[in-house]
């Protein structure tokens, strides 16, 4: 048996597929266990999205339209690392979020809150050689959803990353520290208790820009390679 190139997550890191408090998981979770697949070239390779040209404003969600969006301007930054602490350079980071009023620029979102013509809520950036990324955006609002009576999503920003391989693909959500809605959110709480606070950004006074914007730091940790055996 060949050794896997990428480490496999221990239990307790990710949500269970079936997390019944989040009702949509009931009909949208496999009942059969996933089949363990030894990692071949198909799993250890993946897209770099290297041909995707990013324009300079794609990581500034406040400057993509004619005027500035309403809401509290914030800096969201951090590093993309692997489990070994190694930076993941040149990694595409894609985000999307609702506006300050809690409404997505999406035809499916029928929440009775105003759209902001100056905010579409999507951004992309590539990490630098140290795995660092930065977005300028506005703080997303909370919004109601129909999961249960009086259900509200805590403010969050969706993150999508590939990292170096098909095996390291991750879609997640970043939350804000101390949000009182976290305690009631079945999506956040689908993550095992010991791991869920990793989805909270930390308030970052050092990066906060005086007279301009508060900053939050959110590091993303992707699966790392196994140590190469000594030969």
């Amino acid at each position: 048996m060949e050794k896997d190139i990428y480490q496999r997550p221990a239990t307790g890191q990710h949500p269970l597929n079936l997390s019944p408090a989040y009702k949509s998981t009931v009909a949208r979770s496999p009942k059969q266990p996933a089949i363990m697949l030894p990692q071949s070239l198909s799993e250890i390779t993946g897209p770099s999205l290297g041909a995707e040209r990013l324009n300079a404003l794609e990581n500034d969600l406040t400057r993509q339209r004619i005027g500035e969006p309403l809401g509290e301007r914030i800096v969201v930054h951090g590093r993309v690392l692997d489990e070994n602490g190694k930076p993941v350079p040149k990694a595409m980071v894609e985000i999307w979020q609702c506006n300050a009023a809690g409404r997505y620029h999406h035809p499916g979102d029928q929440h009775d809150a105003p759209l902001d013509p100056n905010f579409t809520g999507g951004g992309r950036v590539r990490t630098d050689d140290e795995g660092k990324y930065e977005f300028i955006t506005i703080k997303p609002g909370a919004y109601p959803w129909k999961n249960h009576h009086n259900a509200w999503r805590p403010a969050h920003i969706h993150f999508s990353l590939f990292g170096p391989a098909f095996a390291t693909r991750l879609i997640t959500q970043m939350y804000f520290p101390g949000d009182p809605l976290l305690a009631y959110d079945p999506i956040y709480n689908s993550v095992p208790e010991g791991a869920r606070t990793r989805l909270q950004a930390s308030f970052d006074i050092e990066t906060t820009r005086p007279e301009w914007a508060l900053a939050y730091k959110f590091d993303v940790v992707l699966r790392g390679r196994n140590a190469t055996p000594m030969e």
């Binding site: 609702c98 499916g108 579409t120 959500q173 956040y188 993550v191 590091d219």
Partner: peptide, 18 residues
């Protein structure tokens, strides 16, 4: 060693440009 970032749903409103 760094702890893995947990996965979450993509949700229904993933951004069009994605």
């Amino acid at each position: 060693s760094h702890a893995l970032t947990p996965s979450q749903t993509i949700g229904p409103f993933y951004w069009g440009t994605l």
